Computed example of a mutant assay.
Amino acid sequence: MKNFILFGASKGLGEAFVKGLPEHGDQVWVVSRTYPSSLNVEDGIQKYWIEADLANPDASKLITSALNDIAIDVLIYNVGIWESKGFRDDYNFEQDDPAEIANIININVTSAITCIQKLLPNLKKSDNAKIFLIGSTAGLEHNDFTQVSFAASKFGLRGIGNSMREYVKKYGIGVTCINPGEIATQIPLEDGVEKVLSTYGGTQIPLQDMVSLVKCVMNLSKASCVKEITIPTMLDTNA
């Protein structure tokens, strides 16, 4: 039996993790601002919602209080907000609101640090704990992303992974940063891979691929250290 805590799991990739990673008898704590519909699915998995706004400095305390002393085997920080006009043809960095810039860094970077910090006692209770940070190809060198704050936050997430890995390896905790290209979050997990391939022609990653990747790493023994995985689409020019 495994215990999961999944951040940003009310929709998209996070929802796919809720549906695709746990097995019968596992327990899952879902951290999100909005109620996750996946909690209504009867599948033999115990699911709990932790309602939390990660922009709030006290969010990490609220989350650890909800978990109390429960051992956590898998933590996935799947959080990534971006500029309100990011990834649009009319995006203009010079018009970014300073408050929005600060919020992006706060949620994507600062909250990742503080939440993992507070949950380390729970992770230490596991025999083979794994931490996953979901980054982006925007956080890699030699890309052409112009969304400065989002890209900076994803570069920062890789830095968190590097240092966190060094800190927790004495406890046998693994830390893996995954840097995916564009993911087909519009097509639910249950619709299958073939629908994604026929719809996007290999330009977006099926949710199933991300679930399979995490499942593989989380089931490795503590002797293996998977530091970082970059998974662009086959046609991604930013990778």
Rank of each mutant, 00 (worst) to 15 (best):
T110C: 07
V148H: 09
A71R: 01
D89K: 13
L140V: 09
A55C: 04
I45T: 09
V79A: 00
Q117L: 15
S163H: 04
S224H: 13
M164W: 02
N92V: 15
E194D: 13
K61V: 03
K47Q: 12
W49G: 08
T199Q: 06
K154S: 11
L189S: 06
W82E: 11
C216W: 08
I183R: 10
N103E: 13
I5P: 10
T64I: 13
A16R: 07
A66L: 06
K130R: 10
I81F: 08
Q117R: 14
R165N: 01
L21K: 00
I229K: 15
M218D: 12
G86C: 02
I76M: 01
T34K: 15
E42Y: 08
A152S: 05
G135M: 00
C177W: 00
M164F: 00
T64N: 00
T137W: 14
I72H: 14
V193F: 01
L54Y: 03
M1P: 15
A99E: 06
D58I: 02
Y167W: 01
K227N: 14
W82Y: 14
K61F: 12
I45S: 04
S84K: 13
R165W: 00
H142S: 12
G202W: 11
K215C: 09
P188R: 11
A102Q: 03
I187C: 10
